[in-house]
Amino acid sequence: MTLGSQILQYIISGISIGSIYALVALGFNIIYNTTGIINFAQGEFVMLGGITAASLVTIFHVPILIAFLAAVIIVTAAGAFFERLAIHPLKNPSVITLIIITIAGSILLKGIAMFIWGKDTYFLPSFSGDRPIHFLGAAILPQTVWILGITGLVVILLSAFFKFTLAGKAMRAVASNRMAASLVGINVKKMVLFSFALSAAVGAVGGIIIAPIALMDYDKGAIFALKGFAVAALGGIGNFGGAIAAGLILGILEALGAGLISSHYKDAIALMVLLLVLFLKPSGIFGSAQESRLKKF
């Protein structure tokens, strides 16, 4: 194997894992934009999506497409339920209180998942087989293509939603000024509910498409939340394009770090590069300094 095709292989691996980070980060951004909350339960939505789809397919032998839709619907409902239960009753809470509430929520969701699915590892068969596509000496998994395609589709749909639909515009209005939005008749509380449901759905999609590559168990949410948060922050929180770019960059950095330097320190290498960037450009890679000054958190 030549060095060139090795590096190509690293980059392909990096892109596929990076696009999952990006999807998780999108979930963070949707909620952040309407509420200003960093939702640490986002990783649990990913886990729930993956584990629901995997158990539907492997235990109940549901066709993959139906399992996909069912899992997204179930997790979306879970996200809405979580908002009604934990966020809705609050009157003017501080950001840090909200963050701790989402942490409590993630502990609860994880606990519930443990009771439903037990401690077993679940795995979803690849959407279209495991025979790799060879490209310049590197192997591309069909699932990687699915991941990239679906991630791209989600991004396009989300941007169209925020640009062209009334609900999307209303959510953006809430994001830029809560008070003004409610004055023009937007039901802010409803938009918050909506943003939780939407970000749960996006998280679930991420969980389902990664499930054939990674394995799913009830304890897997935290790692996604961690990486997704890092990516969202570095992309400039609330910035969709930034999240995609930062996700891919983190994934590729990790893969190159492991491949060319040391797999023992792969996560540390990627983080160090990102921290350096953050120190040099304190508003995130793609965030503007002006915007970040206006943010609550």
């Binding site: 960093i38 922050a233 120190f279 304190p282 970040s292």
Partner: peptide, 13 residues
């Protein structure tokens, strides 16, 4: 020098 979630992210990293 960082603020809010950038600070959270940096300390987390």
């Amino acid at each position: 020098r960082l603020k809010g979630h950038y600070l959270a992210m940096a300390t987390l990293g």
